[in-house]
């Protein structure tokens, strides 16, 4: 059983992936994945996420994190992809 973390997709990110959440295994032999590598992974997984990730926020366990930091996601973490919503 590989170690997993959860991704939550909101608004346009959910539209692009057609799922509201998914479990993703950590890279083999590694206890972490950096946010940078996660972005690359998500873009490969869902082509339609590419433009959306440019402007989205990441939250780990519902706490905002800077996108450009080398923050590490570990087993059991819940990462939310939150694009801006602008309608009204």
């Amino acid at each position: 059983m590989s170690k997993e973390f959860t991704i939550l997709y909101y608004a346009t990110a959910r539209d692009a992936t057609k799922v509201s959440s998914e479990k993703i295994p950590l890279p083999s032999q590694s206890p972490f994945i950096s946010l940078k590598d996660l972005t690359i992974l998500l873009k490969e997984r869902h082509k339609k996420l590419v433009p959306i990730l440019e402007n989205s926020l990441y939250a780990i366990n519902m706490e905002y994190v800077e996108n450009d930091q080398a923050i590490l996601v570990k087993e059991g973490d819940e990462v939310a992809v939150i694009p801006p919503v602008s309608g009204g």
Binding site: E54, N55, P83, S86, G88
Partner: peptide, 20 residues
């Protein structure tokens, strides 16, 4: 602070196109 650059215009839905 949260959204330093605007999203590309074609990726933005409004209520008349996206519905609400």
């Amino acid at each position: 602070c949260l959204f330093p650059k605007p999203p590309p215009p074609e990726s933005v839905l409004n209520c008349s196109d996206g519905g609400v």
